[in-house]
Write a protein that binds this DNA or RNA. Structure first.
Length: 597
RNA sequence: GGUCCCGUAGCUCAGUUGGAUAGAGCAGCAGAUUUCUAAUCUGCGGGUCAGGGGUUCGAAUCCCUUCGGGAUCACCA
């Protein structure tokens, strides 16, 4: 569509100056709102070929376009900027088209690309916290956005179910648990296991203190506590597939998975396939051995295997310990390759992981490349910044973790309070109310975490996140609810509402109406940009802007009560379409729209 | 010390490949048919885009540099 103007400018330059424009010379943008017009051509780059002043060039082009190009109704030149206005016909034509397309903005056909998105990927010894919320919402949202532009997406996570950290919880449970289970304790499975992880730490610290009191140095004491010794023994037994150990491990992990499942359900995220580190680390070892045989890696005297990335500007990096056991990166190599085997048509993988692991992924992708995976060049680390709290940084060690379940519950509770104050939900069944509070609370949380550029560290202010005014999820929901209320009102008086029966015909749009239509016009390009930059924040801001413009329109236009049929139908259609775009846009953020609130 | 990211209004954040007088929300102040849902709308005040230099018709945006904040540089995960 913007193409219409672009093509026109190219043709004008060819006709007027007999010059072919390069992409750099053709600069089109939306006209700033303080100037009349819809699209703006930046004429500075064109003065070189016109050999005229910017103003004269603009005038010449403007005149040509008004005369020669359909839909261009007027123009003005300010300094070096040519602002062109499109006719009402153009906008109503566009709107009619958009209205007929229920999935306007979404790809009409598959792109043919298959992308894998990994997110969440928790450890099994700790419950999910605020940082995981940003991770999950981001990963889920990017997946949905990629689907919207036509890609096939497979959502996965790698579950870090192996290693010393799991053994710690196991040891503590064995020593102090007295056979406690989620059933007997009434605790969620992941919370119960997390509790024993903390118990381990307590016991470990206490025993360390005793050892240090006997004159042992701290470093040694940390290795020598009885619980630590037990944990290491447990890891050895696990690797040796000791029956009893594996049974305990399986049982405690199943508790965790049950807990995670309910947390994911509350979050509204899901996965197409799960990978377990306990399976993939073996692949990793094999791949590293293969790479060694193929000459991609080298072995040090002590038997450890390394990759040399110094000519890539990186360092040497160990891939396998001297005792032959797997490291963190070993299992990631195995997992990545396994995935390419599982899905041979995979174009690339996206890893949603915190920015503290940027170096790790740089190394990983180089290693994959060395192993012959050309697709590794396309792999992408979707890196995001830390979520900080007003009091200070969010780190699990510092005890200021905000538990994911607790936070989600709190958000729903606040939604409850605010809704009760508003008093608009009378007559709604209790079950639906409860569902609604969750929907609103999650909208607040998700929108707050997703509206910030992923790569930036962000501040999570609990108080502000639950403010339902302003640039927030609930305020966008509210605008959607408003569109529903209006259409409902119309339907009651007119035996239903059918969008296809209220086509706008010959209505001269007001400025506020045109603002909304022009915003809807932007939707496809916003979606494209969000997909290209893996940035849900673009979608969030767009939905808010659209809602804001609709509210401004709503403020001084009659809709259902409008006497003129043409205007009434146009506004009903606009209300319908705005609601749809908001609903579809917000759904890409994983945010649901209620019918009333 | 090396590498990477960030620094925009009192606070939280936007700002496409360099474009016009740098924008929203919150907080503050002043207003609006008490409705087709006011969880809204309109207006006002608030800025050395961290500092300095450079590139050019034009810089918050690109380059150099200084300062400040964060991350990372394990045979940890």
């Amino acid at each position: 569509m913007q193409a219409i103007v672009g093509v026109a400018v190219r043709k004008a330059c060819s006709d007027l100056f007999s010059a072919v424009l390069t992409d750099g010379q053709l600069q089109l943008q939306k006209t700033r709102k303080e100037f009349p017009g819809h699209f703006t051509v930046v004429v500075f780059p064109l003065t070189k070929i016109s050999k005229l002043s910017p103003e004269a060039t603009g005038e010449l082009l403007g005149n040509y376009m008004v005369e020669q190009v359909p839909y261009v109704s007027a123009f003005n030149v300010v300094k070096g900027f040519l602002n062109v206005s499109m006719s009402q016909d153009f906008w109503s034509g566009f709107f009619t088209e958009a209205l007929a397309n229920a999935r306007f903005g979404f790809a009409q056909e598959a792109s043919g690309s298959h992308v894998m998105v990994e997110y969440s990927s928790p450890n099994t010894n700790k419950p999910l916290h605020l940082g995981h919320l940003r991770n999950n919402f981001l990963g889920y949202s990017v997946s949905e956005i990629l689907k919207a532009v036509g890609h096939r997406v497979t959502k996965v996570q790698i579950i870090n179910d192996r290693g010393i950290h799991i053994c710690k919880s196991m040891v503590a449970w064995k020593n102090f648990g007295n056979g406690e289970t989620p059933e007997t304790s009434g605790l969620k499975g992941d919370k119960l296991v997390g509790k024993y992880y903390v118990e381990f730490d307590k016991a470990h610290k206490a025993q360390m203190k005793e050892l240090v009191a006997t004159g042992m140095d701290e470093e040694r004491a940390a290795q020598q506590t009885s619980v630590m010794q037990q944990a290491q023994e447990m890891l050895r037994l696990w690797e040796a597939r000791d029956k009893e150990t594996i049974e305990l491990w399986t049982m405690m992990n199943s508790w965790v998975y049950e807990g995670f499942t309910s947390t994911y359900q509350a979050m509204g995220v899901n996965f197409d396939k799960l990978y377990y580190e306990s399976n993939t680390y073996i692949n990793g070892k094999e791949e590293v051995e293969k790479g060694l045989a193929a000459g991609a890696f080298f072995k040090k005297e002590d038997g450890s295997i390394w990759v040399d990335l110094t000519d890539e500007g990186l360092d040497q990096k160990a891939l396998l310990r001297k005792d032959g056991t797997a490291m963190y990166i070993t299992q990631d190599i195995g997992t990545a390759i396994l995935r390419f085997h599982d899905f041979p048509d995979l174009a690339y993988q996206i890893y949603t992981v915190g920015n503290e692991q940027e170096y790790h992924f740089k190394v990983l992708f180089k290693v994959l490349k060395k192993l012959g995976f050309e697709k590794a060049d396309q792999c992408y680390h979707l890196s995001y910044g830390m979520v900080e709290l007003p009091e200070g940084k969010m780190k699990s060690r510092e005890g200021t973790v905000v538990d994911a379940d607790d936070l989600m519950e709190e958000m729903a509770a606040v939604a409850h309070e605010v809704s009760a104050e508003q008093g608009k939900l009378e007559g709604l069944p209790e079950v639906e109310k409860k569902q609604l509070y969750h929907t609103i609370g999650m909208a607040a949380l998700k929108y707050f975490l997703l509206r910030v550029d992923p790569k930036k560290n962000m501040l999570f202010n609990p108080k502000e996140s639950i403010d339902f005014n302003g640039n927030t999820g609930p305020s966008v929901q509210y605008t959607f609810v408003r569109t529903r209320a209006i259409l409902r009102r119309y339907a009651e008086a007119n035996a239903g509402f059918d969008a296809s029966k209220v086509m706008p015909t010959g209505h001269a749009m007001s400025e506020a109406e045109l603002d909304v239509v022009a915003k809807i016009y932007e939707w496809p390009s916003v979606l494209e940009l969000a997909a290209a930059s893996y940035n849900p924040a673009d979608v969030a801001h767009y939905c808010y802007d659209l809602a804001k413009l609709y509210n401004a329109f709503y403020q001084d236009h009659q809709i259902v009560r409008e006497a003129n049929e043409g205007a009434r139908h146009f506004r009903l259609a606009l209300t319908h379409k705005t609601g749809e775009v908001i609903r579809q846009g917000m759904s890409l953020l994983g945010i649901a729209m209620p019918d009333r609130m």
